[in-house]
Simulated scan of single mutants.
Amino acid sequence: MGNLTFKLFHTRMCNQNIKKRLHSQQDAGFSLIEVLTVVVMIGVLSAIATPSWFAFVNRQKVNKANDAVLAALQEAQREAKNKKLSYTVSFQKNPTTQNVEVAVYNTNAGSPTWKPLGVDVGVSSDKLLLGANLSGENTANSTTNSPVSYPPSSTPTKITFDYMGALTLPTPNFGTVPTGATEPPGLKIVVAVPSSTNSTLASSVKRCVIVRTLLGSMIAAKGSPNCD
């Protein structure tokens, strides 16, 4: 009798264990509603994060390109001082590759050697806009704006330093003092990301380098009104 009772108890426990295993297998995985909920949440998060990510990438790209502009100007000024010669920085758009290009060279040594702006820091300059408020070498235009556009490749934008690292004479023109300001805008080189609606116009993501004094002091700036 005892053995029969034990066998019945053992059989019942085994059946319960089998039911539990089968039940757990039936409950494994996710329901359709759970999967759809996760997909919707991922879509919402992507919609929120994607614009911020692209904005971050654009800012980084413009920052690097602007650093390259500043480095080129500083290199020209340094070479002018070290070699006691006049050195020029020129910017242009290559009509074939669409790259923004820069050249640092001895002003009196013949044709400059051009290279894409920011190539050393991994920036694709064909996706950027370059502008300046220059109407001539070391001469700001008569307006307070700094139009962000490509200068013609035949007449590249130039800033030249003399053998002491100052801007070359005759006296540079730093532009007209804007209303409400105390000093002229200076010589500006502007880098910007194109507008999403018009690739020839600048977006609000812009940076600039401004040469402010006859001695060639310069600063890096961003946004409006500094880079307008």
Rank of each mutant, 00 (worst) to 15 (best):
M1R: 09
N3F: 14
L4R: 15
T5G: 07
T5Y: 11
H10D: 09
T11Q: 05
C14A: 13
Q16N: 07
K19A: 15
K20V: 13
H23K: 12
S24H: 07
Q25S: 14
A28V: 04
G29S: 13
E34M: 10
V38L: 15
M41L: 15
V44L: 15
A47R: 14
I48K: 11
P51K: 06
W53Y: 15
R59G: 11
Q60T: 08
A72R: 00
E75F: 00
Q77P: 04
K83G: 06
L85D: 08
Y87I: 05
T88C: 13
S90K: 06
P95Y: 09
G110V: 09
S111V: 11
T113L: 13
L117R: 01
V121D: 09
D126W: 04
S135E: 14
T139M: 10
S142I: 13
S154G: 11
T160F: 03
Y163S: 14
A166P: 00
L169H: 01
P170S: 05
T171K: 09
N173S: 10
F174S: 02
F174D: 02
G175T: 03
T176R: 10
A181I: 02
A181V: 07
T182M: 07
G186S: 06
L187H: 02
L187Q: 00
I189G: 00
A192N: 03
V193K: 01
N198F: 01
N198A: 06
T200Q: 06
L201Y: 03
L201E: 00
L201R: 02
S204G: 11
R207Q: 15
V211D: 01
L214F: 15
L214N: 09
L215R: 12
S217H: 11
M218T: 02
A221G: 04
K222H: 08
P225A: 06
N226T: 05
C227F: 00
D228R: 03
